[in-house]
Design a protein around this nucleic acid. Structure first.
Length: 428
RNA sequence: GGAGGAAUGGGUGAGUGGUUGAAACCGGCGGUCUUGAAAACCGUUAGCGGGGUGACUCGCUCGGGGGUUCGAAUCCCUCUUCCUCCGCCA
């Protein structure tokens, strides 16, 4: 959501910037709507001022014990006109709000202009994809062979795009969660929070998923509850409609949650394995910053996410998304892509974004300095990391010729073993 | 799920139909005093939206929405949240 007066003052420049991400702002409609709204407000308020003055007169007359019926009659008829004007203002406000809420964020000037993911720009690369002296397998083969991943039974008890992890496979998921939370809280300075996994519509509006991306979400019947598609939603909304102390910023939070996505429109993509699921686990990083520090904090947040991959010894590259590939709420986004032998390529495992004040305006999150007025904060978030895809990356990158998985050093204290073997699982 | 009670400015809290946008106290800010500080005293201290270059001015706002009335923090309806008790439950 954009700031109305800022929009008004910079309309043409904003329209130009939005065009770089493929959004055509209807400048004429905006101007028309705006002046119509202001005219209606002015007229209604002038009438209200008159009405208030009349009421004060009536009060005076009544105190003197005089009759004021003719004045009362006059005000009664004014009230009718006022209420019809106010209805009009309300209507205009609504269409204005809808229009503003549907406009995406303005891309930061450092973001490459482009139409699609093809135009994303790689900014760095870490590690070398391993050269195998045998034919590496994909996780959808390795998982069942090791008896740690069971997609068939998941389909039975729930449906497609769900997974059951068994034994050390389940423990690997849990180990990754604990490992990531520990690194971020103990070494990167984040505070851990555990939010509800169901959230309400207002929260989804605040971070920008609603109203536009309703179809990507799961909704609970008969309640204003939705399954959280990412911890970004509950965690960012923690401070919705609050004014923070600017001295406390940046506030750095991390949260483990499952994430639920309908994946509408992704039929046929990533159908094999657990790359794209209706439910996946994620450790999320969220920051609230002062406006002038947000891009600095974006670099740090991205580095914090990259650090997890480095500690796990997983090769990755970092790309900056082009204007055409970014999410609507973001002003700048880095994607971290991990090397997956099963895909013979890099696959997104984290997305780190600066939303500037876009979400803060929608959600009413402000911060007040010691002196001066409260202003909207900048919000940022990034996956640190997606657990399921990290699970895949470990299994595929650390597979050995005999079909076992070598456990990276950093994870051994969490998993309690240095090698994942099939016989560790007695069922099946 | 049932029965009650509550929601007022940064905080505590007064206010049951007419200069109450809101007393008082605390806190914050500015000042007097002081070598400095404390204390004391004085002043000041809500947000949003219109109009105006501006001093300024008008409107809306006492949890949200609606209603009654010439006029609502105050009366009515409704929703939300919190508290207490009962039931149920991990």
């Amino acid at each position: 959501m954009h700031d109305l007066s800022f929009f008004r003052a910079n309309l043409d420049a904003i329209a130009q910037r939005l065009a770089t991400r493929g959004f055509q702002l209807n400048v004429e409609e905006f101007r028309a709507l705006d002046s119509e709204r202001r005219a209606a407000i002015t007229e209604s308020e002038q009438l209200k001022a008159q009405k208030n003055a009349e009421s004060a007169e009536i009060a005076k007359l009544r105190k003197q014990g005089l009759d004021a019926e003719d004045r009362q009659q006059k005000v009664r008829s004014m009230s009718e006109r006022i209420s019809s004007l106010d209805d009009k203002v309300k209507e205009l406000d609504e269409s204005f709000r809808t229009m503003l809420a549907g406009i995406p964020n303005i891309p930061h000037e450092s973001v490459p202009v482009g139409k699609t993911a093809e135009d994303n720009v790689e900014v760095r690369r870490w590690g070398q994809p391993r050269q195998f002296d045998f034919e590496p397998k994909a996780h959808w083969d390795l998982g069942p062979e090791l008896h740690i991943l069971d997609l068939e039974r998941a389909a039975k008890i729930t449906g497609a795009r769900f997974a059951v992890y068994w034994g050390v496979g389940a423990r690997l998921e849990r180990a990754l969660i604990n490992f990531m939370l520990d690194v971020h809280t103990r070494e990167h300075g984040y505070t851990e929070v555990l939010p509800p996994f169901l959230i309400n519509s207002a929260s989804l509006f605040g971070t920008g998923q609603l109203p536009k991306f309703k179809d990507d979400l799961f909704k609970i019947e008969n309640h204003d509850f939705w399954l959280a598609p990412t911890a970004e939603v509950p965690v960012t909304n923690l401070f919705r409609d609050e004014t923070l102390d600017a001295g406390q910023l940046p506030i750095k939070l991390c949260a483990y949650t499952p994430c639920f996505r309908s994946e509408a429109g992704s039929y046929g993509r990533d159908v094999r394995g657990i790359i794209r699921q209706h439910q996946f686990q994620k450790v999320e990083l969220v920051k609230f910053t002062r406006p002038e520090q947000s891009y600095d904090e974006l670099e740090k947040l991205t580095a914090d996410a990259e650090d997890i991959l480095k500690r796990l010894g997983l090769p990755f590259r970092t790309v900056v998304l082009s204007t055409g590939d970014m999410g609507a709420a973001s002003a700048k986004t880095y994607d971290l892509e991990v090397w997956l032998p099963g895909q013979n390529g890099y696959k997104e495992i984290s997305s780190c974004s600066n939303f500037e004040a876009y979400q803060a305006r929608r959600a009413g999150i402000r911060a007040k300095p010691d002196k001066g007025k409260a202003d909207y904060v900048h919000t940022l978030n990034g996956s640190g990391l997606a657990i399921g895809r990290t699970w895949v990356a470990i299994v595929e990158n650390y597979q050995q010729a005999d079909g076992t998985i070598l456990v990276p050093e950093a994870l051994r204290p969490y998993l309690g073993t240095d090698c994942i073997k099939p016989e560790s699982q007695p069922f099946h």
